[in-house]
Design a binder for these strands. Structure first.
Length: 272
DNA sequence: AGTATCTCCTGCGTGC
DNA sequence: TGCACGCAGGAGATAC
């Protein structure tokens, strides 16, 4: 399940192969993702040059001269570079964007929660992008920002931080992990966070995301990076997926609960 | 405006 | 071996 590190890893993995190349064909095998793919996409892209690939939150923005293709990988989506001569499409390979020189960009998504949208407006002004919170790894995501944003917010900190309008890119895994590292109980009301806790939590969010990017993204289920190699981060998760097991710090049994239909794991002794 | 709930979908693990 | 079931989860849509 792509979280921000996986999306950034994908961006870095695919960009060198296709940046500056011209689209020679587009193959749509399955139109129905989260929203239907515009059938005219073939016409929009064919013979157009891909200028660059940007990222905002978990959205990849493929920049063409006359517009942008917004791609979200949803829960189970992945993008990889293929050789159009030798890589036959497999199940759930819904879209191929084929470039000159037998190189293709293949979109694979078993659960089809992802999206592929064409826009001719400024992509950063697109309604799905415009209201997103700060990038967690940039300097405007600070303890001060989080402290201010959380005032008078009664919802639990864990659900709060996963709201992409507060900060982008902190999905379930990294919410759990960063709360553990920060010693903050996931059920705590956001407005009860102290300024010091915000400072610490922000630093730990940055750290866990940065480490994951360095290592190529968390390996989970069907995620594969842009170059086809899986990441190696899953081995060192402290709490995610470890409910009922011993806390790595104090050996207390980790508690597993549900918050907003999502699994939360924490140590009731270490996290207050 | 803030909060909670519903929704899309397939693959996998579990229990009978 | 097969089937029913629950669960996994990003984030927009919807209701209040």
């Amino acid at each position: 399940m792509p979280e921000l590190p996986e999306v950034e890893t994908t961006r870095q993995g695919i960009t060198p192969h296709i940046k500056g190349k011209q689209v020679s064909a587009v193959i749509l095998r399955h139109h129905q993702l989260r929203w239907p793919i515009d059938s005219q996409l073939v016409d929009y892209l064919t013979r157009k040059k891909l200028l660059n690939i940007h990222r905002r939150g978990k959205y990849l923005l493929l920049e063409f001269v006359h517009g942008h293709l917004l791609i979200h990988l949803g829960m189970s989506g992945s993008l990889r570079i293929i050789n159009t001569k030798t890589d036959a499409p497999q199940k759930h390979d819904h879209v191929d964007i084929i470039f000159s020189g037998n190189i293709g960009l293949r979109y694979h998504d078993p659960r089809r929660f992802g999206s592929i949208l064409w826009t001719t407006e400024d992509p950063f002004n697109h309604k799905l992008i415009r209201k997103l919170g700060p990038e967690p790894l940039l300097e405007d995501f600070t303890g001060e920002y989080l402290f201010k944003a959380s005032r008078k917010r009664k919802k639990d900190v864990k659900t709060f931080i996963m709201d992409s309008h507060i900060v982008v890119g902190v999905g379930n895994i990294y919410a759990n992990e960063s709360l553990f590292t920060s010693g903050i109980r996931p059920t705590k009301a956001a407005e009860k966070l102290t300024r010091k806790q915000c400072d610490l939590w922000v630093e730990n969010i940055k750290a866990v995301l940065q480490r994951s990017i360095t290592q190529g993204g968390t390996t989970l289920r069907d995620f594969v990076g842009g170059d086809g190699k899986p990441g190696y981060f899953a081995q060192q998760l402290n709490v995610y997926g470890r409910g009922g097991e011993a806390c790595v710090t104090c050996r207390h049994i980790l508690k597993e609960i549900r918050q907003a239909q999502r699994t939360t794991v924490y140590c009731s002794r270490c996290q207050k």
